[in-house]
């Protein structure tokens, strides 16, 4: 099919007038591309009080928006029929939304976190079963340093739907530890544990407490509450207590 026939089928204009429109469309596109290109640095110079990284992300978003508008404006200058423009636009938007639905939700999550500041870097948060100190707030996720020494990435979108708790600065934990001592009375077990706990007291954030002391066959089972700021050392402290008890001649185990 000749080229003019193709134009007619697509309802596109023909001749030198179309060439002028093409040039105009290129100019319009260039203007929007330039505006989009310089947007992040312009925003940086205007919003000095807001964190640089966040402004750069906002700037990038606005840049992309300007690029899209530029494309649409350029298409409209070409005098394509509204139907064609609308179809192109709707397809692009639907495609972007489908492809980046999680990404967009996470990005919106970051905007929520930054603007509403429900928490910031360094604070302690709990979301569902996940808990930890906020190491960094990123475009798509929040990095948490957990009490177990792990680094986990929580998608920002979870903070839009989930419930989180900000703990005060002095947040610590009470760790329950279980000991069993064979061949002793309840009173002897209580006394032995109290003396042993004194030796690990300097590592605790408060006084340890005996919660429950009960007999099970020839064992005495003792539940101990250990207040700890750094829960990572719980296992080491319990082991240290067991060694102390054994040195004193008790047949002791940590459960």
């Amino acid at each position: 099919m000749p080229l003019e026939g193709v134009w007619k089928v697509l309802e596109l204009p023909v001749g030198s007038e179309f060439l002028v429109r093409v040039v105009t469309a290129v100019v319009v596109l260039a203007v929007f591309l330039a505006a989009g290109h310089y947007m992040p640095s312009w925003l940086l110079s205007r919003l000095k009080h807001v964190e640089t990284g966040f402004i750069q992300k906002i700037g990038t978003t606005i840049s992309i928006f300007l690029y899209v508008i530029g494309i649409v404006a350029a298409l409209s200058v070409l005098s394509l029929s509204y139907a064609v423009i609308e179809i192109i636009f709707v397809l692009v938007v639907i495609g972007l939304l489908i492809a980046f639905r999680d990404t967009l939700a996470n990005a919106v999550g970051e905007v929520y976190i930054r603007l509403r500041t429900p928490f910031s870097e360094g604070e302690w948060v709990k979301i569902g079963d996940l808990e930890g100190r906020v190491a960094s707030i990123n475009t798509f996720d929040v990095e948490l340093a957990t009490p177990h020494g792990e680094r986990i990435l929580v998608p920002n979108s979870l903070f839009l739907r989930g419930v989180f708790v900000k703990k005060p600065g002095m947040a610590g934990s009470i760790v329950e530890a279980y000991f069993s001592l064979r061949g002793v009375t309840i009173e002897e077990a209580r006394k032995a544990l109290k003396e042993t706990l004194k030796t690990i007291r300097p590592e605790l954030s408060g006084e340890p407490k005996l919660r429950n002391v009960e007999r099970e066959n020839d064992y005495v089972r003792v539940t101990v509450m250990l207040p700890l700021l750094n829960v990572l050392k719980a296992k080491q402290l319990v082991n240290r207590a067991v060694i102390q008890l054994r040195r004193k001649g008790y047949e002791a185990e940590a459960l």
Partner: peptide, 12 residues
């Protein structure tokens, strides 16, 4: 280096 090695024991 000391901080890295003993982090699991340090509270504050």
């Amino acid at each position: 280096e000391y901080l890295k090695e003993t982090a699991q024991l340090i509270d504050v």
